[in-house]
């Protein structure tokens, strides 16, 4: 038996799974939009706008779920400020604890996502606006190098938002979560593939979004899925050594259910959409592929979370 089996369940379940999913989507959408803005064409702005319009609502809903998951939701700010005197860092900040630095990462990312969301709201036609909205527009895209730096930093915060949740699970003493170091990169890549899939579904109906931009987005998604497949297989390989040390009654019940679900995620959430993408099929099959990627991303997180949450404490 492995040592992690003597730890207890954190009861991170139904609020946390959609939060992990939305955090990945938010961070991934911001990253893709930032890339389109930074290295794409002027035409790509119509597609990047969709990403910014998704990122902020997604992280906001995610944050709400995160707060609701606390047993004392009204004390959520204790994560960021010291209770006695409201002093923030370094007193309420632990760089070695993902749940601590993650709270700061998502807060900072939400700030970037908020500015870019408002800028995207007023962006149609690129007419400079006056007033507060114009200010956001200016910060986001009207200040040359500064604006580029702004979206670049936002993209980095987005990637971190998508990935720290995996580190949060690995930096515990729970079985499976703590037995691999690849959950952070898995959530990162999966966040990007699901974000690209969602942006495709939202972008394909907009006439302003060019075919070419959509084509490059689906190619990015295919490459992300390829990397995700490698990371999933790597994760399973790192876990192979501990699988034998898990309780047999768990292996024959939850282990089976989660194993079959993971297999379905790999086949239908990664391999099938990848095959569709590589065959360069268009229209409906790409809609199917993107939907499968989204479902796969959600179920992947459920499998990872429940893998430890379903395991009873030993002793």
């Amino acid at each position: 038996m492995i040592d992690e089996l003597y730890s207890a369940s954190a009861h991170w379940t139904w609020w946390i799974i959609p939060y992990f999913f939305l955090g990945g989507i938010a961070g991934g959408c911001y990253f893709i939009s930032a890339m389109l803005d930074l290295v794409g064409d002027r035409d790509d702005r119509h597609l990047s706008r969709i990403g910014y319009l998704v990122a902020f609502p997604a992280i906001s809903i995610g944050l709400l779920l995160l707060v609701l998951d606390l047993n004392q939701p009204l004390r959520f700010w204790h994560m960021l400020l010291r209770r006695e005197d409201f002093i923030p860092m370094p007193f309420a900040f632990k760089w070695w604890s993902p749940i601590s630095y993650g709270s700061w990462v998502i807060s900072v990312f939400s700030g970037f996502a908020f500015v870019s969301f408002l800028a995207a709201l007023v962006r149609p036609g690129d007419t400079p606006r006056r007033g507060p909205l114009g200010l956001f527009q200016k910060i986001h895209s009207g200040l040359g190098v500064f604006s580029k730096l702004f979206v670049l930093l936002g993209a980095i915060a987005g990637l971190w938002t998508a990935s720290y949740t995996g580190a949060l699970l690995s930096v515990t003493n729970r079985p499976i979560w703590a037995n691999t170091n690849l959950l952070s990169v898995l959530f990162l890549v999966s966040g990007l593939s699901t974000a690209a899939a969602l942006m495709y579904l939202l972008g394909r109906r907009r006439r302003s979004v060019s075919e070419d931009a959509l084509h490059r987005l689906t190619r990015f998604d295919d490459l992300s899925l390829g990397v995700e497949l490698i990371v999933i297989l790597g994760t399973l390989a790192t876990l192979a050594a501990v699988l034998g040390g898990l309780p047999s009654d768990w292996a024959l019940t939850w282990g089976m259910v989660l194993g079959v679900t993971l297999l379905a995620v790999i086949v239908f959430g990664i391999i099938v959409p990848l095959a569709i993408g590589l065959r360069q099929s268009g229209g409906r099959s790409l809609v199917l592929a993107s939907t499968l990627v989204l479902l796969g991303g959600l179920f992947l997180r459920a499998v990872v979370v429940f893998s430890a949450e379903t395991m009873e404490k030993l002793g």
């Binding site: 990253f31 893709i32 890339m35 389109l36 290295v39 794409g40 064409d41 790509d44 070695w96 604890s97 993902p98 980095i156 990637l159 971190w160 990935s163 720290y164 995996g166 580190a167 690995s170 930096v171 703590a178 170091n181 690849l182 959950l183 952070s184 990169v185 990162l188 890549v189 990007l192 070419d212 490059r216 987005l217 190619r219 990015f220 490459l223 992300s224 990397v227 990371v231």
Partner: peptide, 29 residues
């Protein structure tokens, strides 16, 4: 925290790889 450094290192590598993939995908035009 025994898993912290490796987890962050892998996500940094993953972010760099995805950054390059993003650059290649979206710069192509």
């Amino acid at each position: 925290s025994r898993n912290l450094a490796a987890s962050n290192a892998f996500s940094a590598i993953g972010a760099a790889v995805m950054g390059v993939i993003g650059l290649v995908s979206f710069r192509k035009r």
